[in-house]
Write a protein that binds this DNA or RNA. Structure first.
Lengths: 142, 142
DNA sequence: CGGATATATATCGTGTTACGACACATTCCA
DNA sequence: TGGAATGTGTCGTAACACGATATATATCCG
C-alpha cells in the first residue's frame, strides 16, 4: 500500500511548493545580505564552509568542494576568485604539495562574523516556518 | 544580554555550515533529478509553483515571481522558456488582459508527478538531518 | 470622454556561477 | 623508475538573475 507509487496529489504539490518557497525566501535573504556586505553569495558560503571546517588543520580546495557539493574544479575557481579578492590565502602543505589549504584573511573573518550574526537572527525567524514546511504531509488532523 | 551582538563563535560557524551543507545536498539532488528528467532546475521549481498554486484560478507570471522570489521580469523569461519547451501554455484573461495566466501541459504534469514522488522520498531521508541542523545552537546537552 | 499614471509583462545586454573536457604537478605503488 | 591515481587549475559553454528599458492594458481624475 505505502510503496509510494501514487501518493502525489494536489496536497503534495502545495506542501512541497510551500517548502521550496520558504527555502527560496531564506536563500534570497542570504544572497542579498552577502551582496550588501560586498560578497558574492557563493564566496560567502565558501567562507562559512572554511570557517566552519571542523576537521584537523585547514580545509583544502577538495574539502570546500565537498562541503559546497560542487565539482572540485568549481571549488578551485571559487578559491582563486576569493584569493584575488583578498578573502583567503592559499598554502601548499609540505606533506602533500598537490593540496591547497585555505585560510581566511582578517577582513574575511570580519565580514563573515557580521553576516553570520544576521543569518542566525534571520533563521530564528524562519526556522519555525521551515520546520513546519518540512512536515510535508501536513498535520494528521488537517 | 541576549541582544545578539557577540554570539558568533566557532560553534555557530560549524552549525550554520552544517545547515548549509544539508541544504546544498538537497538542492543538488533536486537539480540532478530535474535535469535527469529533462528539465532545467528552475523550470522544475516553476512547474511545482504552478501546480502547487492554491489561490483561485490559474497562477499568473506575477504569482510565479512571488513564489520563486525573483523579479517579475525574471519570471516572465522563465515562463517564455517553458512555453517554448511545451511545458506551459499562456492565456490572457479577459478580465485583465495585461496578465498572463499559466497552465501546465499534460507532459509537464507527468514530469512533475515523477519528480515530486522522488522529492518526497528524498525529503523523508533528509528531513531529520535538516531539522537537526535547524537547531543551530545544538542540543542543550551537547 | 481623454490624457496622465499605474500595473503587468516582455526584451536586451551583462555578470555570476557551474559544468565538461582537458592540462599539469605531485604522490603512490608495483 | 615508470605508470596510474590524486588534487588542483584552465578554457569554453550554458542557464539563470538582474537593471534598464519598452509595450500593452487598466485606472483615475477632472
Amino acid at each position: 500500500m505505502e510503496d509510494g507509487s501514487r501518493t502525489v496529489g494536489p496536497e503534495q504539490y502545495r506542501a512541497l511548493a510551500r517548502f521550496r518557497h520558504e527555502l527560496r525566501r531564506f536563500l534570497h535573504f542570504s544572497e542579498a545580505a552577502a551582496v550588501a556586505a560586498g560578497l558574492p553569495a557563493q564566496q560567502h558560503q565558501a567562507l562559512l564552509a572554511i570557517m566552519g571546517h571542523d576537521g584537523p588543520g585547514r580545509p583544502t580546495v577538495g574539502d570546500l568542494a565537498e562541503r559546497l557539493v560542487v565539482a572540485p574544479h568549481t571549488a578551485a575557481e571559487l578559491a582563486s576568485r576569493m584569493a584575488e579578492a583578498g578573502l583567503v590565502t592559499k598554502a601548499h602543505p609540505p606533506a602533500d604539495r598537490r593540496r591547497t589549504e585555505l585560510a581566511p584573511t582578517a577582513r574575511a573573518e570580519a565580514l563573515l562574523a557580521g553576516l553570520t550574526e544576521a543569518h542566525l537572527r534571520e533563521l530564528e525567524q524562519l526556522a519555525p516556518a521551515l520546520a513546519r514546511a518540512l512536515g510535508l504531509d501536513g498535520p494528521p488532523g488537517g
